[in-house]
Simulated assay, not measured.
Amino acid sequence: MLKPRKFFLTAGVGFHEDPLVSFELALRDAKIEKFNLVPVSSIIPPDCVRVSLEEGLKELSAGEIVFCVMAKHSSGEEGKKIYAAVGGAKPISGHGYLVEYSGNYSGEDLDSFVRERASYLVETSHGKKPNEVFSISKVAEVKKITTVVAAAVFVI
């Protein structure tokens, strides 16, 4: 069974004239550029624990296939602000949820927004409030081509 034991949150930003390089630089800023990232949907397994970025990275190696829930946004409209955010919620027992949002930033409290959405999914799925809520977000003003990423990265 392929089931994550741990996960960690990370975010980054990259600036460059080329969209692909901008994305790579955002992944580098988030410290996850060395992995073959595979996007997955929104479920946190029941016994999967959140760890720090540093602890999670210790268990991964360059070139490894790594599953993640990622929000990503790129823009070349200089002066605009863009964002990427991932939030999650876990009940005491049962599976949790991750949500990812990205787009043009207009000043909203991104962390509250994604935490509320993830909490709603737990409450409507399990009929109880989550025991743990968390989030990560990145906002950047566009220069050249700018890419922002936020991710929940799973460790198998």
Score class of each variant (00 low, 15 high):
2 L>I: 12
9 L>V: 09
10 T>E: 10
12 G>L: 14
21 V>H: 08
22 S>R: 02
23 F>L: 08
24 E>T: 08
25 L>P: 01
26 A>N: 03
28 R>V: 11
30 A>F: 01
33 E>S: 15
33 E>K: 04
33 E>D: 14
40 V>E: 01
43 I>V: 14
43 I>S: 02
44 I>H: 00
44 I>P: 02
51 V>N: 06
51 V>M: 05
52 S>K: 06
53 L>E: 13
57 L>G: 01
59 E>R: 15
61 S>G: 04
62 A>P: 06
65 I>P: 00
69 V>Y: 02
70 M>P: 03
70 M>F: 01
73 H>L: 07
76 G>I: 10
78 E>G: 05
80 K>Q: 15
80 K>E: 15
85 A>K: 04
85 A>P: 01
95 H>N: 14
98 L>I: 15
99 V>N: 02
99 V>E: 07
100 E>V: 06
105 Y>R: 11
105 Y>T: 08
106 S>H: 14
107 G>Y: 08
108 E>G: 13
110 L>R: 00
111 D>C: 11
114 V>T: 05
115 R>A: 00
118 A>K: 01
120 Y>C: 04
120 Y>M: 10
121 L>W: 09
121 L>M: 15
125 S>G: 02
125 S>Y: 11
128 K>I: 14
129 K>Y: 06
129 K>I: 08
135 S>C: 06
138 K>W: 07
141 E>S: 14
141 E>G: 13
142 V>Y: 06
147 T>A: 10
149 V>T: 09
149 V>E: 12
150 A>E: 10
151 A>W: 01
153 V>S: 04
154 F>D: 04
